[in-house]
């Protein structure tokens, strides 16, 4: 589903974010990307989204090398990728329902599809009774669930999560991980960058560790360090 081949990405000659990184993620796998700040985790996620392009190597997503993909195809690539952010990136002037529906609306999904699929995904994340609330009326955990619902509503093949539990207390973070695990069970590949040692150790999923842009460990059913 995801393949990086000898990828090198630098922002300046002195700042090399990834150095000759290679790894494979088969369909339906759950992978943690771990490592200290500045180790290249977020850069890797940005490369998979085609927000960045590497100087060397190739990046394959769903069977396509996305490095040479024409710009007008990039939106279609992104429709197969759900993004979860540490700061949720919810739109404050829209309700929970509208925030989730927004992801369908902007890619031209018809209204009747939105009316059917949004309540279903809100039920999945446990927010069906809060569909008319605004983000500032929700707790941090609930806001992140809305963010997950928005990322998953178009049934992407891949979910990329960048520190999704970074702003949450441990209990809420665990609940969120159960939700991501359920989504992973549906066949969605999940790649999650995190610093959360407790969660990584508890989940015992594959762990890819980065240090100064280099993959130093790739361990099945791994722990944080």
């Amino acid at each position: 589903m995801i393949r990086l081949e000898n990828v090198t990405k630098s922002y300046s000659p002195d700042v090399v974010a990834l150095r000759d990184a290679s790894f494979d993620v088969p369909k339906g796998e759950f992978v943690f990307l771990v490592g200290p700040s500045g180790s290249g985790k977020s850069t890797m996620l940005r490369l998979l989204n085609r927000q960045e392009r590497p100087e060397q190597g190739s990046v394959w997503v769903a069977g396509r090398n996305i490095i040479d993909m024409p710009s007008n195809r990039v939106p279609h690539l992104r429709r197969n990728i759900g993004n979860i952010f540490q700061d949720y990136k919810l739109l404050p002037n829209k309700t929970v329902f509208e925030n989730v529906a927004f992801a369908q609306e902007v890619i031209g999904k018809p209204k009747h599809v939105i009316r059917k699929q949004v309540p279903a995904v809100l039920e999945l994340v446990g927010l069906e009774d809060k569909h008319d609330r605004f983000p500032d009326q929700l707790s941090g955990g609930e806001q992140q669930r809305v963010s997950i619902a928005r990322a998953f509503v178009n049934r992407p093949l891949i979910m990329l999560a960048d520190e999704p539990t970074g702003n949450l207390d441990p209990g809420t973070g665990e609940g969120l991980m159960r939700l991501l695990d359920r989504i992973n069970q549906t066949g969605t590949t999940v790649l999650m960058a995190t610093h959360d040692q407790r969660i990584v150790n508890a989940m015992r999923k594959r762990v890819v560790q980065l240090e100064r842009g280099v993959i130093v460990r790739d361990q099945a059913r791994g722990v944080y360090d």
């Binding site: 939106p75 902007v106 890619i107 928005r150």
Partner: peptide, 16 residues
């Protein structure tokens, strides 16, 4: 922020 989200979920350039 709206634009950022639109880009992330795959809205086309022209739609934005």
């Amino acid at each position: 922020r709206e634009i950022e989200v639109m880009k992330a979920v795959g809205a086309t350039d022209w739609f934005i």
